[in-house]
Amino acid sequence: MIRALQPGQRCEVWIASVNGQAELAYSTDDVLLEAPNWTLDGASLILNGDGKLWTLDVSGGSTAETVEVPLTGIPGLNNDHVLAPDGKDIFLSANDGHIYRAALSGGPATRITDDDGSFHFLHGVSPDGKELAYVGIEAGDFTQPGRLMTIASDGGATARIDVGPGHCDGPEYSPDGKWLYLNTESFTSAPGHAQLARITIDGSGFEQLLESDTVDWFPHLSPDGRFASYIRFPSGTEGHPADLPVEVVLVSTEDWTTPLHTWPLFGGQGTLNVNSWSPDSGRFAFVAYPISDSTKD
């Protein structure tokens, strides 16, 4: 589904630093942008919006404007996209349930996944660029739990990694390639109560990173492995819906239980779906979707 802004709603792209500061990089009431990635040169963000892919140059201050990446041969995009380690290509999830690869400069996209009866939602690319981690949902039936899956980055056979019976999402490789970080509902019987976890790429060592009363999604490690960001939904939330009060959280990977900083905002879906860390591990990006209060106008 291609999302659009509600009446009175804005899309704000923010850049937060590990010292707790945050600055507004871009704001628009025209296009609902989602899920920033950071280019390897540290100059631009990559976002989806209106089913398309966009670049946003954030090296020049508040004058940044979005520029469409001219892709062909691919349906409308959703908010699951990750750059290849070489920074030249990007892996993309489209609304037909398939994963594609394309040059970041634009041009034709190549489909990677087969028609295997599942929808494929990309989240991770291994550091060597040879493997992808994604969530598979059988027949696109969203009443069924997502499963942690991997596939070679050029396609072929898929493999499942068992993380229990609960729904999982957001699988992402650690910078050393040894772990997959994700959120999962396998630690509880409470509907929707996602918690942060990790598992080795060989399927051993499945462990919960912290136990909380909130619903925690999308853990993203900084390139140097020292920090992580994630999004915290209110207790009782099911799934990762849009348009509600949430918090973006920064932690040290040495202590997931003690936030270094938090940023409350109105958002959810689209705010922090994919890894948005800068190459120098000093900053990360997220998106807020505030709605004006007409009673105060």
Rank of each mutant, 00 (worst) to 15 (best):
M1R: 11
A4L: 06
G8M: 01
C11Y: 04
W14D: 00
S17F: 13
N19K: 13
Y26E: 04
S27K: 13
A35L: 00
A35Q: 00
N37L: 08
N37Y: 03
N37T: 12
W38F: 13
T39C: 12
G42Q: 05
A43M: 11
S44M: 09
L45Y: 02
W54R: 01
T55M: 12
L56F: 08
D57I: 03
V58R: 13
S59M: 08
G61A: 09
S62Y: 10
A64F: 09
A64D: 10
V67A: 13
L83S: 13
L83V: 10
D89S: 13
L92M: 00
S93G: 14
D96Y: 06
A103C: 04
T110R: 12
D116E: 10
G117C: 04
G117A: 08
F119N: 15
H120E: 07
F121I: 09
H123W: 14
V125D: 02
D128L: 05
L132F: 07
V135W: 07
A139F: 00
A139D: 12
P145L: 13
G146H: 10
T150M: 09
I151Q: 14
D154R: 15
A157Y: 01
A159N: 12
R160W: 09
P165A: 08
C168K: 01
Y173A: 07
P175I: 06
G177L: 00
W179C: 05
L180A: 03
E185F: 03
T188H: 10
S189A: 15
S189T: 15
A190S: 14
P191M: 05
G192H: 09
H193D: 12
L196K: 01
L196H: 00
R198Y: 02
R198W: 01
R198V: 03
T200L: 11
I201N: 00
G205V: 02
F206N: 07
L209D: 04
D216Y: 02
G225E: 07
F227K: 00
A228K: 04
A228T: 05
S229M: 05
I231L: 14
I231P: 00
I231Q: 05
P234F: 10
G236H: 11
T237P: 01
H240Q: 13
P245D: 10
V246C: 12
E254T: 12
D255T: 09
T257C: 06
T258Q: 11
P259E: 01
P259D: 04
L265Y: 03
Q269P: 00
L272S: 02
V274E: 14
N275Q: 11
S276E: 02
W277C: 02
S278F: 04
S281P: 09
D297A: 13
